[in-house]
Amino acid sequence: MMYCPKLTASLTIPSYLPFCHYTRQFLPSHFRSSDKNPNLVSIIRAKPRISHSLRCFASSSMATTPPTQSSETKPYSVLFVCLGNICRSPAAEGVFRDIVKKRGLDSKFNIDSAGTIDYHEGNMADPRMRSAAKRRGIEITSLSRPIKASDFREFDLILAMDDQNKEDILKAYNVWKARGNFPPDADKKVKLMCSYCKKHNDKFVPDPYYGGAQGFEKVLDLLEDACESLLDSVTVQS
């Protein structure tokens, strides 16, 4: 049976962020109250109309934002972002934590993940993603949360899994920027995850949500490649 998260009738979606794995037009007609528990609702899935048309980024996108002057005492902060923060970005967080720990650099990094929507907020990662990672000795324990304005102040690098994620992050940034003060060129912190890949030529990390087991393995292959290179890049610059 396909994994289906619980949904409450009080769900609200910020206007500047995209909807998750369901299309808006199908959502209302498929809410059905449970006979056993009227507070629970079920929903029929509709494949999202999310464009994955991608463009190649210049080689300069490989450059990581240099640590600030206080980097000797302040951990380097990395935020991984995908759509719902239940598959790709929590896996990226888990993979990067594992690599950092194996190199004995835990104290040097602050690592987190988020989504461009709040649909799954508070939920653990997709069990299929957690199982695939666990088979590689990687634990994914994070809970889903949406990206927030303060992330642009607190993180040195924000890595999007695909072009659509990056576009949505920057749209949210422009809304928040108009409402408050942000560090100069904070939007330059946003880069593509696969820009760090060395063993793979993929331009984005595909969403495995609707696919089979191989999709989750593919995601982990890309993330392990990118995270190794990412850590090398950051440690060299610091």
Results as ranks from 00 to 15, higher is better:
M1G: 15
M2F: 12
P14V: 03
S15D: 03
Y16K: 05
Y16P: 00
H21Q: 11
N37S: 13
P38I: 09
I43E: 08
C56D: 11
A58F: 10
S61E: 13
M62Q: 12
T64R: 07
T64A: 08
P66A: 05
E72P: 05
E72R: 09
S77A: 14
F80K: 06
L83R: 05
G84W: 05
I86Y: 14
F96G: 00
F96W: 00
R97A: 08
R97D: 03
G104A: 03
D106E: 12
D106H: 05
F109S: 15
N110L: 15
S113A: 10
S113E: 09
S113Y: 08
T116P: 02
I117H: 09
M124E: 08
P127E: 05
P127R: 13
M129S: 13
S131P: 06
E139V: 08
T141D: 10
S142P: 01
F152T: 05
L159A: 08
D162I: 01
N165F: 03
A172W: 06
V175H: 06
K177D: 08
R179W: 05
R179M: 13
N181P: 02
P183C: 07
P184Q: 03
K191Y: 06
M193K: 10
M193N: 03
K199A: 13
H200N: 15
H200R: 11
D202N: 10
K203Q: 09
F204D: 05
V205I: 04
P206K: 13
D207W: 03
P208N: 10
G212M: 09
G212R: 07
Q214T: 09
F216L: 05
F216R: 08
F216D: 06
L220P: 02
V234H: 08
S238M: 13
